[in-house]
Computed example of a mutant assay.
Amino acid sequence: MHPWLLLALAIVTEVIATTALKASDGLTRLLPSAVVLVGYATSFYCLSLVLRHIPVGITYAVWSGLGIVLITLVAYVLYGQRIDGAGLLGMALIIAGVVVLNLWSRTSGH
């Protein structure tokens, strides 16, 4: 599988696991806890495969940056958690950083 698709899968499974982590109520509910374990295991496995092709700094920047933005959106939709203007600005800067890394950095592994 293409490394960027694997990275997208790693991000999505990490967001699913993090969402389930909240629902697990401190890992006391079985089904959400199982989703947490499978989601994080899948995410890290995909990351390990991505690192064969994309430098670790770029991989982690994209994984964590986009993960932060997606989990914030999911938390807004599922849990009604709000974010203020400063938080939105910060996430816009994260997205801008990921775009700069991928479009103009020679270290991105394209």
Rank of each mutant, 00 (worst) to 15 (best):
I95T: 05
V56L: 13
E14A: 15
L66T: 12
L27D: 09
N102V: 05
L89W: 07
L103W: 03
I83N: 01
V50R: 04
L88G: 12
W104L: 13
Y76R: 15
L101R: 09
L9Y: 11
V69M: 09
V77L: 14
L78D: 07
V56N: 11
L66W: 09
I95P: 01
G57Y: 03
S33Q: 03
L103Q: 08
A34R: 03
T59M: 02
V56P: 04
C46L: 04
L5R: 05
A23W: 01
E14M: 12
P3E: 03
E14S: 15
V99G: 00
W63C: 10
S108E: 07
G109L: 03
G85L: 05
P55I: 06
L49M: 12
L9D: 09
T72R: 06
L66S: 15
L89Q: 09
V99Q: 01
A96T: 03
L66V: 14
I95D: 02
V38K: 12
Y40D: 10
M91E: 00
C46H: 07
G67E: 04
Y40I: 11
N102M: 10
S24N: 04
L21Q: 12
L21N: 10
I11V: 15
G57R: 10
A41D: 03
L73A: 11
R29Y: 12
L103A: 10
R52M: 06
N102A: 02
W104K: 13
A8T: 08
L88P: 00
Y60L: 08
S108L: 00
R82C: 08
Q81K: 14
T72A: 13
I11R: 14
P3Y: 05
P55Y: 08
A86E: 06
T18N: 06
L88N: 04
T42R: 10
S43V: 00
H53C: 13
A86L: 09
W63D: 07
Q81P: 07
T42K: 07
V50A: 02
M91Y: 02
A41K: 04
L30P: 07
S33Y: 04
T42M: 14
S24P: 04
Y79Q: 15
T59C: 04
G90C: 00
L49N: 11
G26M: 02
I16H: 05
P32I: 05
L21S: 12
S43M: 02
A86N: 03
L27G: 08
S48P: 02
W104D: 08
A61H: 12
L27R: 11
F44A: 08
G39S: 07
L78I: 14
V38F: 10
I54W: 06
L101F: 04
T13H: 13
L31W: 13
G67N: 05
G97E: 00
V100C: 12
G80V: 11
T72S: 10
A75L: 03
L37W: 12
G109E: 05
